[in-house]
């Protein structure tokens, strides 16, 4: 269920539940995981996970660089 929200000053387009965690999507296609104990947002760096979340949000996946 997508909800507009502002967390830690970042405007979120929506959120999605996945494997027991809540992930947030901002306007720049960044995905965040909310770290409850520290009340902070953690930027998700796992590209595969990012694309999985984007897919759940019906957003376009991002490119992935192998090697480099």
């Amino acid at each position: 269920m997508l909800q507009r929200n502002v967390i830690n000053g970042i405007k979120m387009l929506g959120s999605v539940e996945f494997e027991g965690s809540t992930y947030y999507l901002d306007v720049n296609d960044n995905i965040y995981l909310y770290d409850k104990p520290n009340s902070r947002l953690a930027l998700v760096k796992d590209t595969v996970l990012i694309n999985k979340i984007l897919d759940m949000l019906e957003a376009k996946p991002i490119d992935i660089v192998f090697g480099g």
Partner: peptide, 13 residues
């Protein structure tokens, strides 16, 4: 995680 936050598969594999 690699240096690029959106590219976890960068760097050594």
């Amino acid at each position: 995680p690699g240096a690029d936050p959106k590219c976890m598969m960068r760097h050594v594999g």
